[in-house]
């Protein structure tokens, strides 16, 4: 684990959206969607970003692939095992040759595919605009990609409306893989799918990672999915990373009260595990007008005066486990894995 190569390093990433009002649309304030986050992703691993809606995880992922222009911060990305390049401030033209190394899988399998294009045009487009001019070559590659994601190559001339949600998600994955990227940013890739189809897509992602040596940045709100697929996880709350650790570590012994509450809130598909949940009080803070000090303090049952006054920094408490909480070292929080492991009823 120690000698792994860093593929992506994000430093102090910020994305503010102006709130515009009035006749001339002047900015009267900012929504601090992503408010200074740092993390790094190793080559070949799956790094998860979890959090609830509005925590900035999707915005962060879109800044990293540069679908959005970050307000501030650095995004270092290693191209072809070479030097790290900061892609945060590159122009459209400078970015163009780097795009092929970072691709994205979207949440909504319906809006992510142009309904007016055939599968060949959709999956073949990245090839076409990146210099594969020969139609025959493209057809071959698209057929290969369709087979790779478990679709029949003869679907080439069909339009997306012929496919179900799960199949469309496979098409989206095929498009993302077309240019042999090293990093795939997956923004909630299974949350819009039916339960029985979710497992198929998760399996496909795992299988592709193994076969192609992909690195995933996996954005999700479903902790069970994150637990299943991620090696390391960052938990976000109101635009900031509050905790980051190895998945096992995070689920076993969370150090941030928000992580603890989040883990405890996940309903488990096992009625024998009905336990006393931690019910958080109040609402998620408004990123346009966040509270003082630690953003989580109004809902935190462990909050002290210090939390109201001073913003905690993300600090390492154990190797590979960083927390942004003043009381991280004194609190003993409950994880989910210390609950008795149930006997699996069906094996």
């Amino acid at each position: 684990m120690e000698n792994e190569q860093v593929l992506l390093e994000v430093k102090g990433l910020r994305k503010f959206f102006p709130i515009r009002k009035g006749f001339w649309q002047r900015a009267v304030g900012h929504v601090r969607a992503v408010d200074g986050i740092d993390f790094h992703v190793y080559k070949g691993e799956t790094f998860g970003i979890v959090g609830e809606s509005g925590c900035g995880k999707t915005t962060a992922s879109r800044c990293i692939v540069r679908a959005l222009q970050p307000t501030a911060g650095e995004i270092h990305f290693r191209v072809n095992d070479g030097e790290m390049t900061d892609v945060a401030n590159l122009s459209r033209d400078e970015l163009q040759p780097l795009r092929r190394h970072m691709q994205m899988i979207f949440q909504d399998p319906f809006s992510s595919l142009n309904p007016r294009m055939t599968l060949f045009d959709i999956i073949g487009e990245p090839l076409l605009v990146n210099g594969v001019a020969d139609r025959r070559q493209r057809i071959e590659r698209v057929e290969e990609l369709l087979a790779l994601v478990g679709l029949r190559p003869e679907f080439l001339q069909r339009f997306p409306h012929a496919f179900s949600g799960g199949q469309r998600q496979r098409i989206g994955i095929a498009r993302a893989l077309a240019l042999n990227p090293s990093l795939i940013v997956a923004d909630e890739p299974v949350s819009a799918l039916d339960v029985s189809v979710q497992a198929q897509i998760l399996n496909l992602l795992l299988e592709l990672q193994e076969r192609l040596g992909l690195t995933y940045l996996f954005v999700a709100h479903d902790l069970s999915v994150v637990k299943h697929i991620c090696d390391r996880v960052a938990v976000m709350y109101v635009g900031r990373v509050v905790e980051t650790a190895q998945t096992q570590q995070l689920f076993e012994s969370p150090k941030h009260p928000y992580t603890e509450a989040l883990l405890s809130a996940v309903p488990q598909p096992d009625p024998t595990l009905r336990s006393q949940r931690i019910i958080l009080e109040g609402e998620v803070a408004d990123p346009a007008n966040p509270p003082s000090g630690c953003y989580f303090h109004p809902r935190c049952r462990y909050a002290v005066d210090l939390c109201r006054e001073q913003t905690p920094e993300l600090e390492e408490v154990e190797p590979g486990h960083a927390v942004s909480c003043h009381r991280a070292l004194e609190l003993d929080l409950a994880g989910t894995l210390d609950a008795p492991i149930p006997q699996t009823a069906h094996s």
Binding site: Q198, L263, Q268
Partner: peptide
């Protein structure tokens, strides 16, 4: 069986239901 659970072994292929609805 196909639902990933916090308690299941991570990173293994989940048993799935073949096909689509």
């Amino acid at each position: 069986r196909s639902i990933p659970s916090i308690h299941s072994t991570p990173k293994v292929q989940l048993p799935t239901i073949t096909g689509t609805i």
